[in-house]
Design a protein around this nucleic acid. Structure first.
Lengths: 350, 350
DNA sequence: TTGTACGCGTTATCAG
DNA sequence: CTGATAACGCGTACAA
């Protein structure tokens, strides 16, 4: 394996110019003031609160700013105000495709309001989530916690410092964005009952996951209502590997249909089952949650319960921005719906 | 724009319950100075360059900082220095799992040096990439461009302002992290020849992708050397959908083995082919590049050429940090090898 | 080795 | 409505 970073044999890797210092520094409001013939403070006003200056000088200043190609220095602005126009988003695992949409939703919402999103991951660790959040707190105006592993009191403590919104979690006192999983679960259970299933199982996710417990409750309740059996047979890391490890317990349970905490686990479970010669869905039906990217790569493609992750990300950001703008009233938000996505991993009981 | 904050823990605290200070606002170096009985500037020195103060006062100051639970105000620090301890990373598509490892590699390297990573995506658009980069430029110390769609001159212009490193691209004059694809391609072609294939095809990615061209060149050269036919039969967006759209052209080509620009396209192509009743690999072998998360979800699992993405991310960050530290021209970088990952989508020619 | 004084770019508080 | 001036917290020549 010969080659290298600079492939083309020309090993001139290091004529690379080192951090050059641009000769002229960026234009400031003083430059604009001079050009427009007004006081710097007037420029500041014109550029931040477009209401407190006369229309004439406003235009004068804006023109000058434009020709100078002026851009605010966010650090200088953050110093007196403490505001950074930045919102943090902490996800539990950046390699979980479920967060793609959360990230994109939040990012789009942020960009639309001229905010910047800061992304961090907690690697499924409550401790790391806490230190990350606290570190972020210094540089952001608010924080979004997606599927947090933190305990409620810790989240509330965070919320005392700056606006906080949680996704996939219900925490009284902070903005909580939770999808209405009952809808999707109801659809799924009804469908499975129609296919002849009477004994369902649930493979749980991390212990600290509020959402995992919630999904199990929803499933249990729905099954009780429909007169089906439902048991929680295993738990594990919310990853493909974690799903694989639950295969033995799932087989032992005798259930004919299995809900997994998320698609990743469902995929892992299905892989392991197939490896052992269990045919899906003939022998056992498998369902995931989230409808992540890649859940249709499998054979059979995974049936799953779609969550409105993108909308959740956008909603979380909107709530924080509302807090920031003082419009605090976090009135009741409409529940975000879930729905059954039927693909090949579920079928008639044999 | 999003950012990945590093997980580096700043102080130790947490056990300290009592609020260290009566004042509401965060402690500053003035508070520390007062408590330690020294001048604020001494505190500044002690906290930034641990060499310029006496060991005694150093400890005095550090103790005071600890009991005060002091944390530097990054904005105040950025103002005089222009340094933010932040590096930007722009990827072309955040939903492409290939970037997982790039992101993690860069993040880990950043965290290790107490830097923070800012993440943004260009959505495969050169224009958006440029505006994003320029926007970032104001708040980061350097920028990493992963698979940039920008033209060379534009990248060089960026590099004139702050340190820049590109991944999957060779740009003379800026740090270029490119894996040795010849190694993996060589392995793959040799394997296919052994399996009886004589006519290979390449499905290209985006036109602006330097890496796509490079992969095609490598394949072409290797085939020529081995006496095999190789043609580029199609091109498309580097996505699953893009891969699907190339199916017709691929079938028309008559090739028995197809290299795709990346795994996403390979998966899409395989799906579309299978939908049309073409059996993989019996009728046609398919190979991807990158070995992304999920490339083993398919049936058959995808054969692919693994790229050291994580190492690339780490390397890119290291180069930028070296620039920042003035140690500018670091010697030749270590080679980043690629290798063939043989799974089920390749087989003997029928 | 440590203290003094000032600047970084912006916003906020007063006057006018 | 606009101008002057004082913070904001930190780094750093320049002195001492």
């Amino acid at each position: 394996m010969a080659a290298v970073t600079n492939l083309e044999d020309s090993n001139s890797p290091d004529t690379v110019a080192a951090a050059p210092r641009a000769g002229k520094s960026a234009p400031t409001i003083y430059d604009i003031a001079e050009m427009a013939g007004v006081n710097p403070s007037t420029v500041s006003r014109a550029l931040s609160k477009p209401g407190r200056v006369s229309a004439k000088t406003q235009k004068l200043i804006e023109d000058a700013a434009a020709t100078l190609n002026y851009r605010v220095n966010v650090f200088a602005r953050a110093l007196p105000t403490g505001r950074t126009h930045t919102v943090g988003l902490i996800v539990s695992d950046i390699t979980n495709p479920a967060y793609f949409d959360v990230i994109r939703g939040a990012e789009a919402a942020a960009a639309g309001e001229d905010y910047t999103l800061m992304l961090a991951e907690s690697a499924e660790s409550a401790a790391q989530e806490l230190t990350t959040a606290q570190r972020m707190l210094a540089t952001v105006d608010g924080i979004i916690l997606a599927s947090p592993r933190l305990a409620d009191p810790e989240i509330l403590a965070l919320a005392k410092e700056k606006p906080v919104a949680v996704i996939n979690r219900q925490v009284d006192g902070v903005h909580s964005i939770v999808a209405d999983i009952d809808a999707g679960v109801g659809e799924a259970v009804r469908h499975l009952a129609l296919m002849g299933h009477t004994s369902l199982a649930y493979v749980a996710g991390p212990e600290k996951s509020w959402m995992s417990a919630r999904r199990w409750e929803s499933l249990k309740a729905r099954c009780a209502w429909s007169g089906l059996d439902a048991v929680q047979v295993a738990a594990g890391a919310p990853t493909v590997e974690g799903g694989r490890r639950t295969a033995a317990a799932v087989r032992a349970s005798g259930a004919t249909a299995v809900f997994c905490y998320n698609d990743l686990m469902a995929i892992g479970l299905m892989q392991e089952l197939q490896l052992a010669g269990v045919v899906v869905p003939d022998k056992i039906s498998i369902l995931g949650f989230d409808n992540i990217f890649g859940s249709d790569f499998t054979t059979p493609p995974l049936s799953t319960i779609r969550s409105p992750l993108r909308e959740a990300g956008a909603e979380a950001l909107a709530r924080i921005l509302a807090d920031l703008k003082g419009a605090g009233s976090d009135g009741a938000a409409e529940p975000l719906p879930t729905e059954l996505v039927l693909r090949g991993s579920t079928g008639r009981v044999s």
